[in-house]
């Protein structure tokens, strides 16, 4: 691949919670942006486009490809094409870890497990069932229930020393369990860690998670203690890309460049 004035590609991952953008050319990533998706996917995507073009100094007409992915992929009317987040995550992760890998992406609304072969082909994928158990939505609900800012959860979980577990599968039942922990005066860090453990359990029961495992997604970007808990649970190293929240957008941009 060689770089020229117009050889730029933008990947836009319009997720349930956040919209992420990666602008790149064959020499590498030029800019990233993230916005809350909110109720207007198209506006969040436009804001990300503006931010990445402003930060990189690349004009829109010099972007040859705009690939939209994620839940709102069909809402981006300036995109040249739409590709599912499953394909984009696989592509983005394989670029960073060019081996046979099993990717676990914890998204705002769903979890995905994607197996990629050592040649970068997708072998299989699974998404969690209809329920929000184990997803970013669950963590948001927990933060609300505990009346704690979401960005404080990771530090709280890290300060816990106990091994409390939540038994319930269902998000509603899990929240009821939390209530009883609160009623029993359980310290906040222990409750948060128990909720994180519940996320980990939901992931582990999705797949045998064979081979090298990579974790991505906004939940991982902001709550690295979940990676530690997964590492502990599977007894193996878990790889995390430098920008785990941007893997889908990165993959989308790479696919755009290759198209």
């Amino acid at each position: 691949m060689s770089s020229d004035a117009s050889n730029h590609s933008l990947g836009l991952d319009v997720g349930a919670a956040a919209t992420k953008a990666v602008l790149l050319n064959p020499d590498g990533v030029l800019a990233r942006a993230v916005r809350k998706s909110g109720a207007h996917f198209a506006s969040a995507a436009s804001a990300c486009l503006e931010e990445t073009t402003a930060a990189s100094g690349i004009r829109l007409e010099n972007i040859q490809s705009i690939v939209a992915t994620g839940y709102g992929r069909r809402n981006v009317d300036f995109a040249t094409t739409a590709i599912t987040e499953i394909t984009c995550h696989a592509r983005g992760c394989y670029e960073t870890f060019p081996h046979a890998i099993t990717i676990v992406d914890i998204g705002g609304q769903d979890n995905k497990v994607i197996s990629v072969t050592d040649t970068g082909d997708r072998r299989n994928f699974k998404m969690n069932r209809k329920c929000a158990a184990g997803t970013g939505a669950f963590i948001e609900e927990i933060a609300g229930r505990l009346d704690t800012p979401i960005e404080q959860l990771d530090n709280l979980a890290r300060s816990a020393t106990g091994n409390l577990e939540l038994g319930s599968f269902c998000t509603v039942f899990a929240k009821t369990e939390l209530l009883s922990l609160i009623a029993h005066g359980t310290p906040l860090p222990e409750i948060v860690k128990a909720a994180f453990r519940s996320v980990v359990k939901r992931i582990i029961e999705m797949d045998p998670l064979a081979g090298r495992m990579v974790m991505t997604g906004g939940v991982i970007a902001h709550n690295t203690s979940i990676v530690d808990l997964v590492t502990e649970a599977i007894g193996r190293e878990v790889l995390v890309p430098k920008h785990p929240q941007f893997t889908g957008a990165y993959g989308a941009a790479l696919l755009g460049l290759e198209s």
């Binding site: 839940y71 599912t84 499953i86 394909t87 769903d110 997708r122 994928f125």
Partner: peptide
């Protein structure tokens, strides 16, 4: 949405 995405991703695969 979930079914649509899964089917689309499967077709891409």
């Amino acid at each position: 949405e979930q079914a649509r995405t899964q089917i689309e991703a499967f077709a891409e695969q």
